[in-house]
Nucleic acid binder design. Structure first.
Lengths: 315, 315
DNA sequence: CCCAAAAGTTAAAACGTTTAAACTTTTGCG
DNA sequence: CGCAAAAGTTTAAACGTTTTAACTTTTGGG
């Protein structure tokens, strides 16, 4: 009826009637039923986003940008937590619940991507290094991040540099390491050693402690993320080493307040805003049926030099 | 048709037919349209949760518990970010999109609560001290948290204790302070002074610096949250004071890794799991139309004594 | 073997909107 | 003032399920 037209403000409705309808809507506290609407229209106006990790500044920043940008375009963002098995996005995995999905995950997620493809749901991958055929993705250039961080250390005169990465399920881990190795090679150096642990403070702490027990100490650590870096700093401190005076440490991600608390961490910042923004753009194109853009967009990270790195100390 | 019955596995369908239908569903990759389903049934199977804050361990823990518990009961959780004006839950604010809402917010949210009431959407408040008529809520006993933290400090011999709280929009701030004051009074002491700042590292940092400039230094700080506490620690350290050797500091919330990094922070841990669990229980009761339980459930926090507090130093 | 009850199946209506088509009123020009 | 075009309104069908009622088949007791 006419009501539908005023809801979708079609032009062909007499002003007086439009007024009347609006008044009635107010009085009755009327609100269109979105299920019915979705049913007939075949769209919901909501975009789903699956997230694996919460308490993390990198994800936080990406999510906020996506939320804002989606809102600008008239879409709602529904976040879903990806727990272990269920891929977490399960609730999103229904074509009629969302118009599109943004998968924010550092893991492969092959199955989910395939399922979504099969269901014909537009999907974009963020922070996901894996290339799934014709699913567009936006990632940061982790290789470059590792390279820049290491180069910075080399520039400070360090020659004994170690890398402590995260779990090998994350492709980012290997990429950062590749950058690390290449930077050393380009400078004619060799790696002091590498190791890995969980992306946690305690992980970094334990690796560093173990190394110290074995009398194996570089003059600088490049860590796979800030949590590991903090753990390393903590372990070093407990054994009487000062950062950066004795040993330099660099992290990755610029987590909340690592730049505000001693020792202000030198780290690699990812372009979260760009990532989120491009991700939304890609998804919108997909939704509007535009031709598929190039599969993977790679963004440059930025080295933030702070106080946890210094010139190598000549003993 | 029969299909509907096998979907909802009603008993009255011949086994052979059930088999046939299932096979067909597999082959066609069939998935029931949830919009149509919601439309006729009047429920969606999703619970919305509005969150103001992301990169925060307290919220993270609550959210994860809620997610898990909801999943157990066959509901999906859709998270929505509450940005400034929109109350963020706007997408949830439609009765036909969700079966119920959990508002996780430390702010008053009067308008939203009223709007939800008006729309007749079951709603439960978490971490929200404000009492909205007949909306059940679960909060932590911030008064008690403040009391216990201060008592701990007093027990260590401190008599010059200061409180640095967060922004006064948060009721929790006043409650924690009330606990602080009462503990002092019960011990026959008076407050060394109070101040406030944002719930940030830099906030705590600046207050402490300012106080030091004015030669105003207590022997112990009770801070409104861990971020403030870290800022205070950092400021003290920069001025040559050691924590806890010279000055003790206690925080609130047990944020990620404040227990792993020097100085391991003494803090107050909120019972996130309980809060989430009770919140879900309440919401389920509301949804099933059970009689309204008592309006506000108050949970006891727990003091975690670590290394940022020590006996007062007798100079 | 018949018949009633039980078990299972099919048909029709309903959920609340949008869209397309048919219909009616208004407008403006000669 | 009449008529065609434009503007606006009403009707009907459709979206994909569930629910209720009506119908058909199977089962089992006498």
């Amino acid at each position: 009826m006419t009501v539908s037209r005023v809801l979708n403000n079609s032009p062909s409705v007499r002003e007086s009637n439009r007024r009347k309808v609006q008044k009635a809507m107010e009085e009755l506290n009327y609100q269109p039923n979105s299920a019915a609407r979705s049913l007939v229209r075949g769209k919901t106006g909501v975009i789903g986003m699956s997230i694996t990790n919460f308490n993390d500044s990198f994800y936080d920043r990406v999510i906020r940008v996506v939320n804002r940008k989606l809102a600008e375009q008239g879409y709602f963002l529904a976040l879903s937590i990806a727990e272990d098995e269920d891929g977490g996005a399960n609730f999103l995995f229904q074509k009629d619940r969302v118009d599109g999905i943004i998968l924010l995950s550092p893991l492969e997620e092959k199955e989910y991507v395939e399922e979504l493809k099969r269901k014909n749901i537009p999907v974009v991958l963020l922070d996901n290094q894996f290339q799934h055929e014709d699913v567009p993705s936006v990632v940061v250039d982790n290789y470059k991040g590792g390279y820049e961080a290491t180069k910075h250390l080399i520039g400070l005169g360090h020659t004994q540099i170690a890398y402590i990465g995260g779990p090998s399920v994350f492709l980012s881990v290997a990429e950062r390491k590749r950058g690390f190795v290449q930077a050393l090679e380009d400078a004619g150096l060799t790696s002091f050693g590498t190791d890995s642990c969980g992306f946690t403070v305690s992980g970094g702490y334990e690796v560093a402690k173990r190394w110290m027990r074995e009398d194996k100490l570089p003059t600088a650590f490049f860590c796979g993320d800030d949590f590991i870096a903090l753990g390393v700093v903590q372990a070093l401190r407990e054994e009487g080493f000062r950062v950066p005076h004795d040993i330099s440490v660099v992290g990755f991600d610029d987590q909340q307040f690592v730049g505000e608390f001693y020792p202000r961490l030198t780290t690699v910042r990812q372009p979260e805003a760009q990532m989120g923004s491009i991700g939304v753009d890609l998804l919108m194109k997909l939704i509007h049926g535009e031709v598929m853009p190039p599969a993977v967009t790679k963004l440059a990270p930025q080295l933030l030099v702070r106080e946890s790195t210094a010139s190598v100390r000549l003993t």
